[in-house]
């Protein structure tokens, strides 16, 4: 697979959220607004790309018997870095994402890419895979956050859309709304990709 193809793979065809259904905990928990979804997506992308790069660089050094603890240490290091820098330079975002930044460590998407891709490929391709998967994760999270914010708060990226008369459905920004929105979006996504496959 070429580098470009590797990159595009994560965007649509193997989208981490809509197709692979990986990393569901942050997906469901932090997508109450479009901003939070985007921020979480970008933070995850940063960790994913960095972890992929380092794992790929060290792939010959790390014996397979201790690969999992090694990957976790590498991932946890990057997550802690993000956590510290966000706390220092983006305190509002840090407050609203709260607990979920440290939880990026256990996002199975990142360990999954390290294990199944980065540990077997060159650094350049590992970066391109991390970018593809990360951006795929980020846009899906942003979409989910937008849908929930739009229906649940009547705004998008904090900007009011419908005006005063609109009575937002609060359930959409509560946990059940996350499941409802995700389920329906996954359904639509698969329906669209099936239709595209049939047309092609």
């Amino acid at each position: 697979m070429s580098i470009i193809k590797t990159f595009k793979n994560g965007l649509l065809k193997e989208n981490p959220i809509f197709i692979q259904l990986l990393g569901m905990c942050p997906t469901l928990a932090v997508t109450t607004t479009a901003t939070d979804g985007l921020a979480m997506g970008l933070a995850t992308t940063t960790v994913l790309v960095s972890a992929n790069l380092v794992v790929s660089l060290l792939r010959k050094l790390i014996p397979s018997k201790i690969r999992i603890p090694s990957y976790i240490v590498i991932i946890a290091t990057f997550v802690t870095l993000i956590d510290m820098f966000m706390h220092a330079y983006a305190i509002d975002l840090y407050r609203s994402l709260g607990l979920f930044i440290p939880l990026i460590v256990v996002n199975c998407l990142i360990l999954g890419r390290a294990e199944s891709f980065a540990s077997k490929n060159t650094p350049v391709r590992a970066i391109s895979d991390g970018l593809g998967m990360g951006i795929g994760f980020a846009w899906a999270l942003t979409l989910l956050g937008s849908v929930r914010e739009l229906l649940g708060a009547g705004s998008i990226f904090g900007i009011s859309v419908f005006g005063e008369a609109f009575k937002p459905a609060i359930i959409m920004i509560l946990p059940p709304g996350a499941f409802l929105a995700l389920g329906i979006l996954v359904g639509i996504y698969n329906w669209l990709s099936k239709k595209r496959a049939a047309n092609a």
Binding site: L58, I62, P63, I66, P69, S70, V73, I74, A76, T77
Partner: peptide, 9 residues
């Protein structure tokens, strides 16, 4: 090896 990785971290 693990020690090396963790110390670097």
């Amino acid at each position: 090896i693990l020690l090396l990785i963790t110390s670097a971290a």
